[in-house]
């Protein structure tokens, strides 16, 4: 399946260095640097308008960077003669000519890179569109168009894949399908970069995360590291903190004292803490579970960089 196994030996398949892109006075990408390594799915996360699509367009040579570099396999995309063999990209599933059939759409793209019609039929089969190959794309649902866009990306059997918001418009089955597809592509040693504004989706798909906001890098981390950083815990306040700490520690919990004097407890559930305190007659003033999911960690990380937000109170 994997045309060129040597991709796995390249350490930095996608490399963005000090990338800046401004449109007039608006800075879409601002000194962004990150690397994407092969063999894993890297989630490219950020709120709407964070600069994800702009970065991907620059990587593909569609937009010119104001300064900095965006390299794939150590070179610029625009220097590639038959790029579909090296990089497959899905930018916008709606970017199809509605009057063409799915087969013709892919054949036009394939032909430009000397890819045969047999491969076109193969990828249509792979994404589950073989039955509608001769139908006009205009009648496709967004989910079908997403599959068609993924088929186009897979045409050249490339070692690097970039998907911009690929799960938009997919039904739950479709979401699961693409999740498994991306994981299997990465497992074959390919480099997979997937952008999304939904942490909940990336949590299930990605191994690594590149989180950006307002064009700047916020975090470049693994999913596990991020989860550890924002681990679940319970905040407990009691007038007998010292006794409670000892009791909780004896029960196997990890206890930290927060600056405000409350206890941050890890490793015990709310009920267990309550029972434990009651058994020892320790009064509790507060028992608050934190559900610091990755979603919340992400919200916290990007809270300063959300461009478009509904105002809580609307002046009348």
């Amino acid at each position: 399946m994997c045309r060129n196994a040597s991709y796995t030996t390249v350490e930095r398949v996608i490399e963005v260095r000090e990338l800046t892109k401004s449109y007039g006075r608006t800075v879409a990408v601002d000194g962004l640097s990150f690397q994407v390594k092969p063999g894993s799915v890297t989630g490219f996360l950020g709120p709407n308008g964070a600069g994800k699509s702009t970065t991907m367009r620059i990587l593909l040579g569609l937009d010119a960077a104001s300064s900095g570099e965006a390299l794939i396999n150590g070179g610029r995309y625009t220097g590639l003669r038959r790029p579909m063999y090296e990089v497959g990209a899905l930018l916008d599933a709606n970017a199809v000519h509605s009057g063409r059939s799915a087969f013709d759409h892919l054949r036009c793209l394939a032909r430009s890179n000397r890819i045969g019609t047999r491969r076109v039929a193969e990828v249509l089969e792979q994404v589950g569109l073989a039955g509608v190959a001769r139908k006009r794309v205009g009648g496709f649902s967004l989910g079908m168009k997403q599959r068609l866009g993924i088929a186009a990306a897979l045409l050249g059997d490339p070692g690097v894949l970039m998907f911009d918001e690929p799960v938009n418009g997919l039904d739950p089955d479709g979401v699961r399908w693409i999740r498994e597809l991306m994981r299997s592509l990465a497992a074959e040693g390919r480099t997979v970069l997937v952008s999304s504004h939904l942490m909940s989706e990336m949590e299930l798909t990605a191994d690594r995360l590149v989180i950006i906001g307002r064009g700047r890098l916020i975090a470049d981390t693994s999913v596990r590291e991020l989860a550890d950083r924002f681990r679940r815990g319970v905040t407990v306040r009691s007038p007998r903190s010292a006794d409670l700490t000892a009791a909780l520690a004896a029960a196997g919990a990890t206890v930290d004292t927060t600056p405000s004097g409350a206890l941050s407890v890890q490793g015990l559930a709310v009920d267990e803490i309550g029972d434990l305190a009651a058994a020892r007659g320790i009064p509790l003033y507060e028992v608050t579970p934190h559900s610091a999911t990755l979603e919340e960690a992400y919200m916290e990380l990007t809270s300063d960089s959300v461009d478009y937000r509904a105002e809580k109170s609307i002046a009348r």
Binding site: L62, T78, L91, D92, N94, H97, S112
Partner: peptide
């Protein structure tokens, strides 16, 4: 028609020259 649909980006990604 390629600009209107956005297909132009796919075309340029396939043929960057």
């Amino acid at each position: 028609s390629e600009y209107a649909t956005g297909l132009m980006r796919s075309s340029l990604a396939a043929v960057p020259r």
